[in-house]
């Protein structure tokens, strides 16, 4: 698709600067002396017969890292961010997260994910996008991609709402209207060119 690049010099964040679940956890030692850390500072005791008894009973740092994998954690804003921040931008070889089009602070889930609800009850995910420039004609496409991505991965009890952040786009009203209109969204996905473009954008999403 030949068109002029609209924003030639967007600000790009490094992948390590993006918010992630890892932050706040102790980083594992990786110096030259850490070669045998798994033996020397093992969290498991060496002769465990069953998995449940294999932790040191008295380890104060033992936050159950081994159980982490199977701990119950609701779908939260970070998870939504992880799902959509890896979408590629249609004009730059970077992801929406790196370009700050998607920001963690602009993802809202209602009711709060921490509130335990009946799994059947509805939740709404609101994603507010910030285009890199306020007259970006690709804003609708980006919004569409985010919408498609979330609809593909979230369970049916989640409603998805994608809009431009207030004041971030010259025509945010129109764009929001387009994105909220189910029929127009469905029609847009019938368009092969548009669908191809969105599929390319979603290729970089890992799962």
């Amino acid at each position: 698709m030949s068109r002029e690049i609209q924003n030639e010099n967007p600000t790009i964040l490094n992948v390590s600067q993006l918010p992630s679940r890892r932050q706040g956890k102790a980083t594992p030692r990786n110096g030259p002396d850490s070669k045998y850390d798994n033996i020397l500072f093992s969290k498991h005791w060496p002769w465990g017969v069953s998995k449940t008894s294999s932790f040191w009973p008295s380890d104060e740092e033992d936050d159950g890292e081994g159980d982490d994998e199977y701990a119950e954690e609701p779908i939260d804003e970070q998870e939504i961010f992880d799902l959509i921040s890896t979408i590629s931008d249609p004009e730059h070889p970077h992801t929406l997260g790196q370009l700050s089009v998607v920001r963690l602070a602009d993802i809202h889930i209602t009711p709060f994910p921490t509130e335990r609800l009946d799994p059947q009850s509805l939740r709404t995910v609101l994603v507010e996008l910030t285009p890199t420039i306020n007259h970006c004609s690709l804003a609708t496409v980006i919004g569409l991609a985010v919408r498609v991505r979330l609809e593909r991965v979230l369970p049916p009890s989640y409603r998805v709402d994608v809009r431009m952040k207030d004041g971030s786009h010259a025509q945010d009203d129109q764009v929001n209207k387009q994105l909220a209109d189910k029929e127009r969204v469905a029609a847009a996905l019938e368009n092969d060119t548009l669908k191809g473009m969105i599929d390319t954008m979603l290729k970089t999403c890992v799962y």
């Binding site: 701990a71 979230l154 369970p155 049916p156």
Partner: peptide, 24 residues
């Protein structure tokens, strides 16, 4: 699989998404 991708455990959700992708 759509329902399963709302599983309370994150790792299970990930597996569900992968499965969803293959069936999609």
């Amino acid at each position: 699989l759509a329902t399963a991708s709302g599983d309370p455990v994150r790792e299970v959700r990930k597996t569900a998404l992968l499965a969803r992708e293959t069936w999609a």
